[in-house]
Write a protein that binds this DNA or RNA. Structure first.
Length: 569
RNA sequence: CGGGGUGUAGCGCAGUUGGUUCAGCGCGCAGCGUUUGGGACGCUGAGGUCGGUGGUUCGAAUCCACUCACCCCGACCA
């Protein structure tokens, strides 16, 4: 491809709207163009890379036994209402009304449609296991698109669905996909972490995410050095410490004038924060919830949401708290009636806690569960932090930020039951199909690849997903044969099946080199009067500092060799 | 949806005590010439209903009201 003909131009200045690195670079390289919030055009360079990613993914899906299909983007909302996920997705669903006043949604994912498909075509255990996938545009009306391609409203996703006769079958399918995903990231030249995850709105049981470590990532991964436990912070289990188990003492009211925070209470009464009980208030699907947790632990709203099985969760306002006749700053579940109380399991293992007195400026000493208060639900709702230790081995945690570039779920048979996707087993009994769901966002992976591979000059594409392999860079000079030889070499490289971006612009060396670095094409081949004197060209890898000369004679095969060696690594 | 911010040429910005040095600068773009191993230089030129609507005023990019769009921080996700 000739740079003079390429659609899309590089920019010197960083676009004001971008402050994520990948977003800046994608714009500066002329790879993408924004049309609306979270809606982008992919220009040729980006599209080339995306196609390469797509091909790697397709290849791995096929190898794992997936069959490619394509399903409608336009889906009747009734299908979503049947499974209850119209509610679960809520305003994320793009909805539209057709001329018959029928409501349709633009598919944010395809579990409903694919399950409906399976219900039609899968009747016998002989038809299973089955894996269907597609690579297609998804629509999600995200509340806040951000970071260029990191989080958008319209995006290409590979979504595969597995169908098995039982949980054991699902485990096998799940493992196959897990391995295929590992292969995909490796083949793209990227490092991704496999982490335990929460399943979110998709629902289901086991779930893993693939996270590309990146400073700008919005996900936090908790990682144990000793036993290699790796989980999303919103899911991570951790060691809450051994509480003192003294003999429960008699309850005792204390005056705590003007003291309303856990920190202040702990300081005032000279007890560690872990010896206090904190009260936090939420509104879950419109209902007030009283949450209690040990004073030193933060509440994990994801865990809480899962525990409550609610769609919408938010902190209660002060007015809402007072409305319940609760005293903010001195609240505890002792004697509270008519309010749902949810407790973190951390409060069950200790004794003689300090809790609020439910009167202004008053706290209570020696509070013990369940002697002094009851909770309707006691479970793990605490948020893990890097300072915590591993629940499995006690090892020290570490926290890593990253971008979620893949998510796989064990769905079970919830959807197949509600949509009637069943099969006749060998024993002649009708059973629901056991499903799994596996997704990768392609554009996000592209952006994440840039987040992971760049320097202050620009992108450093991993070879397998670079838009082109070679940047052919002649430094033209009148009265020399640079132009002529560059044309010849360009032809030879293309004949050899190499992907060449030919910088045929009449620009100064500085401009060309800077653009070559910005675009991040892996191998730069420079032809200049200087190299011609030695009957050679200069080759330089984007990721390396050193360059070397190669003879023009047989250059195409020499470069092909170089690329092949690099690919093998 | 809550909080913060920005809209002036393709990009980055100045101008915002209202008034023909207020419609400008840099980059980019077009033409000509000189340059050429890390973002060269000169000359010439094209390009903007100052986000939109309504108002105030003799006069609005500038003041007022409404509105739209986009970005950032939070709650959500591939």
């Amino acid at each position: 491809m000739r740079l003079t003909k390429l659609f899309g131009k590089t920019q010197r200045e960083i676009p004001a709207e971008a402050d994520t690195i990948s977003h800046q670079l994608l714009l500066r390289t002329g790879m993408i163009s924004q049309l609306a919030a979270g809606v982008y055009s992919y220009l040729p360079l980006a599209w080339h890379s995306l196609k390469k990613i797509e091909n790697i993914i397709r290849d791995e899906m096929d190898k794992a036994g997936g069959q490619e299909i394509t399903m409608p983007v336009l889906q009747p909302i009734e299908l979503w209402e049947k499974t209850g996920r119209a509610q679960a997705f809520g305003p994320i669903l793009f909805k539209l009304v057709d001329r018959r006043e029928r409501t349709l949604v633009l598919g944010p994912t395809h579990e409903e449609v694919v399950t409906d498909l399976a219900a039609h075509f899968t009747q016998s255990y002989r038809d299973l296991p089955l894996m269907l996938y597609q690579i297609q545009t998804k629509f999600r009306d995200e509340p806040r698109p951000r970071g260029g391609l990191i989080r958008v409203r319209e995006f290409m996703m590979k979504d595969l669905y597995s169908f098995d006769i039982d949980e054991a079958g699902l485990d096998i399918s799940y493992q196959k996909m897990l391995q295929a995903y590992k292969n995909i990231y490796a083949r793209c030249g990227l490092t991704a972490l496999l982490v335990e995850a929460d399943s979110g709105a998709i629902g289901g049981k086991d779930s893993h995410e693939f996270i590309l470590p990146a400073e700008s990532g919005e996900d936090e991964v908790i990682y144990c050095h000793d036993c290699k436990y790796t989980a999303n912070a919103e899911k991570a289990q951790f060691n809450k410490g051994k509480a003192k188990n003294d003999k429960p003492l008699r309850i005792e009211e204390m005056a705590t004038p003007g003291i309303a925070t856990i920190e202040a209470v702990a300081n005032f009464l000279k007890v560690p924060q872990s010896q206090t009980i904190k009260a936090v208030f939420y509104i879950a699907d419109g209902k007030f919830v009283f949450v209690v947790i040990r004073g030193d632990l933060p509440v994990n709203e994801i865990k809480l949401k899962n525990a409550l099985h609610c769609q919408e969760l938010r902190m209660a306002t002060e007015a809402e708290i007072i409305d319940q006749r609760i005293v903010p700053g001195a609240a505890s579940p002792i004697g509270i009636k008519g309010v749902k109380v949810v407790a973190d399991d951390s409060i069950t293992s200790g004794t003689n806690f300090v809790a609020g007195g439910n009167k202004p400026d008053t706290h209570i000493k020696n509070v013990n569960y369940p002697r002094d208060f009851k909770a309707e639900l006691v479970t793990d709702i605490a948020l893990a932090r890097a300072s915590d230790t591993c629940a499995k081995c006690g090892g020290k945690f570490q926290s890593i930020h990253g971008i979620e570039v893949g998510h796989i779920f064990k769905l079970g048979s919830f959807l197949s039951q509600t949509l009637g996707a069943s099969f006749i087993d060998a024993d002649g009994v009708s059973k629901p199909i056991v499903m799994g769901s596996y997704g990768i966002g392609l554009g996000r992976l592209l952006a994440a690849a840039i987040e992971q591979n760049h320097d202050d000059k620009g992108i450093i594409w991993p070879l397998p997903i670079a838009p082109y392999q070679i940047y052919l860079c002649p430094l033209y000079r009148d009265g020399t044969k640079v132009g002529e030889i560059a044309e010849k070499i360009n032809g030879e490289l293309e004949v050899a099946g190499l992907e060449v971006l030919f910088d045929d612009r009449q620009e100064s060396p500085g401009v060309k080199f800077n653009d070559a670095d910005l675009l991040g094409i892996p191998l730069r081949v420079t032809i200049s009067p200087r190299t011609l004197e030695k009957k050679s060209v200069e080759v330089k890898w984007r990721m390396e500092k050193e360059s070397k000369l190669l003879p023009i004679e047989g250059i195409a095969s020499a470069i092909k060799q170089l690329i092949a060696e690099k690919s093998a690594k």
